[in-house]
Structure formats: structure tokens, C-alpha cells
Design a protein around this nucleic acid. Structure first.
Lengths: 184, 184
DNA sequence: ACCTGAACACCGTTCAAGT
DNA sequence: ACCTGAACACCGTTCAAGT
């Protein structure tokens, strides 16, 4: 994304480097939080200077963006044919919750800048798709999906003791069901 | 909290200083986010050195704690006698939302450390109290209150376009009502 | 009690210069 | 194309020393 993309065949070194940089950044972030990810520290883990790292990635912000979308990509997405919408949405919410507990720094990063990325987008679309299989219109499905993500993020932020999570989420799903009944 | 508390009458200088420090910190935080609050910068706003600031406040973390509880204290709490539980909970959720939009750095701070404080506690208790006036048991009221806060925080974090907020929240309130019906 | 100055060990980022 | 070294303008925190 930062290099002018050479005319050679298949991004031979650059892409790999980029991925390795992201993985190593996540290691630093996972133990020590966002404060322990520095250009100098990450550089030395990779065997290069902080200045050299700036050749591969534009800024520390871009680094967070890269790491963030990587962990969004780690969330397993249940297949649309395998589950009914309600257990599917519960499973997706739980997968999100468990990702956030593995990578708590993501919440911090999300408050510092909007973290759009292909994997985040794919996750959102998948959630909306499941909502739609319940019979909701596209618009309502978007609202429901957004509410589920919001609740999962907020519950992680407020460090809910676990059992608290279920009440709000169940209510939202009940709300989906009620919306269905009304539209029919 | 950091001084041994002199034996004189009514915390004459120290308390005022503490409050002034908090207010000035919030000014810095409000325009520029968490990154723009530094001991050096805050110190110079107050006319003292960063080192001098460390005499008043133990660390930058303590500073964030002070600022955070201050803005929690700014949320207006509707009186218990004035409103029915449902409009009251909606109002409290909206007051929280508007505080978070005025002080976006609070979300960042909350992800960095648990931010307990007297004002935050008071807000939680008030929310629980309103839930209890609906007829919920103490335990259920705590779950409902926790869910409302989680949703408000998450919605602010996901930067909902505003209209998205209502669906999830309404569902949670519907869930409260359904819980009532079941228990009766 | 309250503040300064200097020091220590860090930061992100830029840029000329090397290969 | 990829990296280094040095530099710039910052950090939080500690501590001796001043008043």
C-alpha cells in the first residue's frame, strides 16, 4: 500500500514482509497493550531500525490499522447454510467477544481512529447476511447487526463478568424477532 | 489523595488545586484526545513544571482517573420521582451518549485501565435504582443497568450514525419489560 | 509545602547517505 | 529497493536541591 507496486509477477517479498510485520506487531500488542508497540521495539524484533520500518509502513497509525484488520480476520465466520439465524448470531457475538479478550488493545485502537479494513467489512457483511436470513429487510438487518456489534464491544469495554453479556444480547435478538412479527 | 492531609480546617488549597488540575486536563483532552495530555503540557498551562505536577498527582494514570470521574460527574441524573422507568432509562442513556460525544477520550481511557470512581459509581447506582422502580429484582436490575451502559459505550465506540442507537436500546428495554411479565 | 533543573530512558518521524 | 545514523522535538518519572 505504501510502495508503488513493481511490475513483477506476484508481490514476492513486500507482501510477506507486510504480513510478518503485522504478526509481530500483534505479538507486542498482545502482551503489553498499545503502549508497548513502538517503532523502535518492533523494528528491533524484526532486526531493523525504526527508521527502516518507516519504509515498510507509513506511520504507527497505519501499523495499528494493519494489526487491527488482521485480528478481525481471525474471527471464524459460521457458514450461512449451517445454522439458524439465532444460534448463528449468538455464535458470532461470542466469537467477537473471545477475539476481543485475546486482543484487548483493539478496543483502544478503535477509540483512537476509525479502523475500517477488508476483514472488518467482511465480518459486518456476514453478520448482516445472517440477520437477513431471519427475514429482516436489508435496512433492519443493518440496524440489528450494528446493535449486536455495539453491544459486544461495549460489554468487552465494561469488562462484563460474562453472565451479564447474555441479557442484553438476548434482548436484542428478541427485538429482532419482534420486528419480524410486526412486519408480517 | 496523594498528600497526607494537613490537620487544618477545610482542605484550603490542595482540594482547589486538584479540581483545577482536573478541569485543565479535561480541556487538553477535549481538543486533541488522550495523546495531547502530557505532564509537560498540562504543567505549562498551570504555570508549573512537569516535575512539579508530579507533586500534586502521582502519575499520568492518576490524572486520567481524575479527569474521567469528573466527566462522569457531569452527567445529569433525572430524579427518581420525576419519571417513569422507561423514559428515565432512555434519558440516562442519552445523557451518557452526549457526555461521551463531548469527551471521546473517555472511551480510550476506559480501555487502558479500569476507571472506578465515586461519580461513576453514583451513576451506576442511579441507573440500577431506576431499573428497580420497574419492579425488577436487584440482581435483574443490575444486569439491565449493565446492559444499558454496555450498549451506550459500544454504540459510541462504533460511532453509530445516531438512528442506529435506538433499535438496540429499545430491544433491551423491551427485554426488561418481558422479564417483568415473566416474574409476575 | 511546593517548586525547579537536570538527568535518564524512552518516544515518532525525517532525511541525507550508503549499498 | 532497502537500510543506517544522526538529528529534532518530544515523552513520563525521579531526585537532589532550593525556598
Amino acid at each position: 500500500m505504501s510502495s508503488p507496486s513493481s511490475s513483477t509477477v506476484g508481490m514476492p517479498r513486500q507482501a510477506l514482509q507486510q504480513e510478518q510485520i503485522g504478526q509481530t506487531a500483534i505479538v507486542l500488542l498482545d502482551d503489553g497493550g498499545i503502549e508497548s508497540l513502538s517503532m523502535r521495539r518492533l523494528g528491533s524484533r524484526l532486526g531493523i531500525t525504526a527508521a527502516a520500518l518507516h519504509w515498510h509502513v507509513r506511520s504507527r497509525h497505519d501499523l495499528l490499522l494493519l494489526a487491527a484488520d488482521t485480528v478481525w480476520g481471525q474471527i471464524p465466520l459460521p457458514r450461512l447454510e449451517d445454522l439458524e439465524w439465532r444460534p448463528a448470531l449468538l455464535a458470532m457475538a461470542d466469537n467477537l467477544r473471545s477475539m476481543l479478550s485475546r486482543h484487548p488493545w483493539l478496543l483502544t485502537a478503535m477509540t483512537l481512529q476509525p479502523l475500517d479494513g477488508p476483514c472488518r467489512d467482511r465480518h459486518d457483511e456476514h453478520l448482516i447476511a445472517f440477520c437477513e436470513t431471519s427475514g429482516l429487510t436489508r435496512q433492519d438487518a443493518e440496524q440489528a447487526a450494528h446493535s449486536i456489534v455495539a453491544f459486544a464491544l461495549g460489554a468487552a469495554l465494561a469488562t462484563a463478568p460474562g453472565r451479564y453479556v447474555s441479557f442484553g444480547l438476548q434482548s436484542i435478538l428478541d427485538g429482532v424477532e419482534a420486528g419480524l412479527a410486526a412486519h408480517r
